[in-house]
Design a binder for these strands. Structure first.
Lengths: 278, 278
DNA sequence: TGATGTGAACGTCTTCACAGCG
DNA sequence: CGCTGTGAAGACGTTCACATCA
């Protein structure tokens, strides 16, 4: 789950729960697919299947929007597409700037899903003078100096940060100062923003770490009940001996720092700082 | 937030709540930064600030791992880094394959955050014969035919899908058949997987849509209380007249489908299918 | 009759407030 | 004394089960 953090304390937005808002785009995608196949109506059961949720949840979600279904029949696809689009604000045009045109920024600029949903990329910005002037996704990459100008001229309210972690906060500050009030952050850093500015975070590495946690548990179940090193003594989990069959895990280091003695036993740790592609 | 869907019904994993697991990587990052600055201990307050959460939540989270702090003092940085790493399974080495080497796949392959946390990219795979043989991030891109071989030879249990939406399910099926049991999906499609396989989804377009929702609400507050088209009659929200000052929104279409009459009034809709960069 | 819409029950997550310990 | 660790309360989200209505 790319996890986001709405700055105000999870205030229900006009009565629509955050969790529901987060699922509306999912429904919209499924509905759009149906619309293209000219399917006139769907039941909550069918639509829920296509969106990967259960039908009770879907019906409750839709109930927050109003009564858009027909009992005994289902939901009118076209009508629902429009209502959800309107609720999400996709019947408007949202100019967007992307800052940091590395591989990731370029991927975002080329991403078809943006343009098709009311988002229009109006500016690509990078600090590297080498990049300035180059064409990416049909747009000319601009130097960072132009950031404020692009934001103001286009009335941009949504900014995407795809810079290295070190640059993210500074870029964020400039975006906010120029008038941006919603930020999608791909850099692995925590952004501080004033009240009224929304930040959502997408962190590639965090997602993998969550997967690793669950993967580790599966492995633990296959072996005996996993040994619990509750106190300082650490017993590294022995990988099951069956080599080729068991999914590959190879233990690395084995020495933790101890909480009591002076924690200066071992100088620096191994891990490099998490840095974005650039 | 990029949202994930653990397949089993949100079972607490060995007593650690999912929400806590999702935050551990955040804490780990903040702790690693402190560790590099050779800070020996942190209070829950400081660490919470660095991670962007409140301190009560952080303490509760850590309490699920055990009592790793010292009252009146705080937490030993090195020790906590190790404990969280172990809990997340990052003291092991996780071989990973990335399928779909477009801009996004290349960005992922180059992403420093992977390698530094126990994740090792062992295979880059793409269906395009043109790409096969090219070097990306120091690895040779392999053709899809090699998928099963790479997964089996390296004991890969985590796969990343960065293909277009249309290819995602097929790639997923092959990964699972070859032995992968955790999947990070960047394609905008709902994946069906057998029990025991975890899927996490990162959807760039969904994140933007959620931002747009909140952005729209901010705009609505600035104007009068937003008009509620509760019944079929739709009143498109008039954008505030102040042009340059108000953040840019320009209305597009205005005609919704009606729920009662035959829904065949207007053939196809405008929006193109959401497709990944390739 | 068959599907929606929704109160009510349940489970999970967050926050509070303070006991307890170094 | 200061900070952790945690019961308890409250907010939020999900699921159930069924009244309701086209």
């Amino acid at each position: 789950m790319a996890t986001g953090r709405p700055h105000r304390p999870a205030t229900r937005s006009r009565g629509i729960p955050e969790a529901t808002v987060a699922r509306l785009p999912l429904y919209l995608r499924a509905l759009t697919a149906l619309s293209e196949r000219s399917v006139p109506t769907v039941s909550s059961e069918e639509l829920a299947g296509a969106a990967g949720v259960n039908s009770a949840k879907l019906r409750k979600d839709f109930s927050y929007l109003g009564s858009y279904g027909t009992r005994g029949v289902g939901y009118d696809v076209e009508y629902l597409v429009y209502q959800i689009s309107r609720e999400l604000g996709l019947t408007q045009d949202w100019p967007v700037v992307i800052v940091g045109i590395g591989n990731l920024g370029a991927a975002l600029a080329n991403y078809g899903g943006f343009a098709s949903r009311g988002f229009r990329v109006v500016g690509l910005i990078d600090a590297d003078p080498e990049l300035a002037g180059r064409q990416v996704a049909g747009l000319t990459v601009l130097h960072s100096d132009e950031l404020e100008r692009v934001v103001e001229e286009n009335g941009v309210s949504i900014g995407v940060i795809a810079t290295p972690a070190g640059a993210a906060q500074q870029v964020c500050d400039r975006l906010v100062a120029a008038g941006v009030s919603s930020i999608l952050n791909f850099a692995p850093s925590v952004l501080a923003v004033p009240d009224g500015v929304d930040v959502r975070k997408v962190d590639l590495s965090i997602e993998l770490q969550i997967l690793a946690f669950h993967e580790q548990r599966k492995a633990g179940e296959n072996a005996a009940a996993l040994p619990e090193p509750e106190n300082g003594e650490v017993t590294p989990v022995e990988p099951p001996a069956t080599a080729a069959v068991t999914r590959g895990r190879t233990d690395r280091e084995g020495q933790p720092a101890r909480p009591d003695g002076g924690p200066d036993s071992d100088g620096g740790t191994d891990s490099a700082p998490a840095v974005m592609p650039a």
